[in-house]
Amino acid sequence: MNGGLPPSTPRQLARVTDRVSFLYLEHCTLGRDGGALTATDESGVIHVPVAALSVLMLGPGTRLTHQAVAVVADAGCSLVWVGEEGVRYYAHGRSIARSTRLLEAQAKKVSNTRSRLAVAREMYAMRFSDDTTGLTMQQLRGKEGARVRQIYRKCSESTGVAWKRRTYDPNNFSGGDPINQALSAAHSALYGLSHAVITALGCSPGLGFVHTGHDRSFVYDVADLYKAECTIPIAFNVVKKIQDDGTADFADIAGITRRAVRDRIKELRLPEQMAHDLAVLLVGDREQPDDGEFWADVVQLWDEKDHSVVGGMNYSDDAADHAVESPDRP
């Protein structure tokens, strides 16, 4: 192929708030047919609506062509490779957004101790019923720890699923007990969606306000906002359902949990909620980040006085001279 299809524009792509949460595929080969993604196995070929997906989860036995990766990346869909019964994140497509408005706000706030603490307090306030004003990070962590222990205890009491403590080995998924396996599978799916929304909006997955030092610190920050109403109760309900079936067959507990999380994400309209919450946390915007400034595909030049000036121009040494248009950017 020489040249290929032209890249899509932001307005041609579905907003992250309108996308399906994730699709899981295994034992197939992903390719490209024109501008569409295809998945081929012994049953035949299906066309995957990648532009309408937030996350494409690739399980064991999946293979990718170069053109498949190109169409996925252009669609702004995140790729998540799934190991044997576990989820690992390795790559993502280009952000759907073209503006760095949220990224710049994130970098500015995380780089200042006072503003970083303010965002961390607001993130905890989204989970607590009481006021977090004036609390230190140590106090916030203590309150969060007590809250999570209470959630586990309540879910255990309501479902009858035995609970000891959260333990897991990322290199040995099957080594955990059923409830910890379900929690790992549920949280991994939520992390994938959180990462997809963060990158789709142009933010940095690594610049966390509560978590730090990891390239997915902000992913964990955002995912933690929704575990109590999404993944934790789902994990306990899945284990209860398997136990009630009488077979106690936990062989597909990861798949059952993942599908339950997907349904719950749709029910909660979680991508839309995540996008809204990110806008509130970073720029104080109570509306969805979908205005013209956010989506505009415009490159500007930094200026120490005016903050930014129009890019794609040839400025002369004399500031009073008229700017001359430069060749289009590639």
Results as ranks from 00 to 15, higher is better:
residue 100 T to W: 03
residue 160 G to H: 06
residue 285 D to K: 13
residue 214 H to M: 04
residue 5 L to K: 08
residue 14 A to Q: 12
residue 126 M to F: 14
residue 30 L to F: 05
residue 296 A to V: 08
residue 126 M to C: 06
residue 198 I to S: 02
residue 150 Q to M: 13
residue 34 G to D: 08
residue 330 P to V: 15
residue 53 L to K: 11
residue 294 F to A: 08
residue 279 A to V: 06
residue 5 L to V: 13
residue 256 I to Q: 09
residue 63 R to E: 02
residue 241 K to Y: 03
residue 142 G to T: 09
residue 159 T to C: 06
residue 186 A to V: 12
residue 84 E to T: 10
residue 56 L to T: 10
residue 5 L to R: 11
residue 261 V to M: 07
residue 216 R to V: 05
residue 303 D to C: 14
residue 10 P to V: 03
residue 26 E to T: 09
residue 237 N to R: 15
residue 313 M to N: 04
residue 252 D to W: 02
residue 287 E to T: 15
residue 110 V to K: 05
residue 244 D to V: 12
residue 190 L to M: 07
residue 44 G to S: 10
residue 99 S to Y: 07
residue 297 D to T: 10
residue 129 S to L: 09
residue 59 G to C: 07
residue 198 I to Q: 00
residue 247 T to L: 13
residue 9 T to Y: 09
residue 263 D to N: 15
residue 248 A to Y: 13
residue 181 Q to T: 02
residue 224 D to H: 04
residue 254 A to Y: 06
residue 88 R to I: 11
residue 258 R to T: 15
residue 129 S to I: 09
residue 11 R to D: 15
residue 314 N to W: 12
residue 269 R to T: 13
residue 254 A to L: 01
residue 305 K to D: 11
residue 198 I to K: 05
residue 255 G to E: 11
residue 5 L to E: 14
residue 67 Q to D: 14
residue 57 M to N: 07
residue 129 S to K: 12
residue 97 A to M: 13
residue 320 A to R: 12
residue 150 Q to C: 03
residue 211 H to Y: 08
residue 11 R to N: 12
residue 237 N to S: 11
residue 272 E to R: 04
